[in-house]
Design a protein around this nucleic acid. Structure first.
Length: 192
DNA sequence: CTAACGATTCGCT
DNA sequence: GCGAATCGTTAGT
């Protein structure tokens, strides 16, 4: 079932990040349907989180998307090379987002292999890798996740509490004490 | 206009 | 483990 606006607009971005693990991210791009079960996420908050692009309510042309109502895609270019995919959460005016960092390939695996030119285990095990596997680029920034271009479904996959790992976020050492926030959620494996 | 710098990945040592 | 690749965003002149 397609995730609704109500799922995304909740006020606790860490809760949304936690619950996105186990959901299924789809894309229908260039006529190819691809999907993966979300295995890793990170939460970013526009208030009191120096790791967030919209920290201290910084509002620029780039971060404006994060201030919109939850349920939109925030996709940006990282290191000039990698397209990173985020889900905008919270209500309009409060800039929160969840970075999708890993997937377990689920559908369109042949197409993913063609896009990535690598083996199954390495198709989507990284934030820059999964966007390439799914054909997601900054061209799709601000896409509405309720439309069937990029969307997320609940397939009833349950993550047991003891299967969900929690840690510091990756690659945000520049954020000072906020780098210590335990806002990364991931599973080591998925059971279908 | 200029300069610094990334929410990463890959290949080589 | 280390460094290059590569370019849009941001802040400051």
């Amino acid at each position: 079932m397609l995730l609704s606006t109500d799922f995304y607009t909740r006020s606790d971005v860490t809760l949304v990040a936690r619950e996105l693990v186990g959901k299924v991210l789809f894309s229908n791009i260039d006529g190819k349907l691809t999907a993966g079960i979300i295995t890793e996420t990170e939460a970013y908050c526009g208030r009191d989180d120096k790791a967030c692009h919209a920290n201290n309510n910084l509002r620029t042309k780039r971060t404006d998307i994060m201030y919109q109502n939850g349920g939109l895609a925030y996709i940006y270019l990282c290191y000039g090379i990698h397209h990173l995919f985020n889900v905008v959460t919270n209500i309009q005016g409060l800039a929160d987002a969840v970075l999708i960092r890993g997937l377990y390939p689920f559908e369109g695996i042949a197409e993913m292999k063609q896009r990535r030119k690598t083996s199954f285990d390495n198709l989507c095990n990284g934030p820059g890798k999964l966007t390439k596997a799914l054909g997601i680029t900054t061209h799709f920034n601000k896409t509405n996740l309720l439309e069937k271009t990029i969307w997320i479904e609940d397939h009833g996959i349950k993550i047991k509490p003891d299967e969900l790992n929690i840690s510091k976020r990756i690659g945000v050492e520049y954020a000072g004490e906020d780098a210590d926030k335990l806002w990364r959620f991931y599973v080591d494996s998925v059971s279908l």
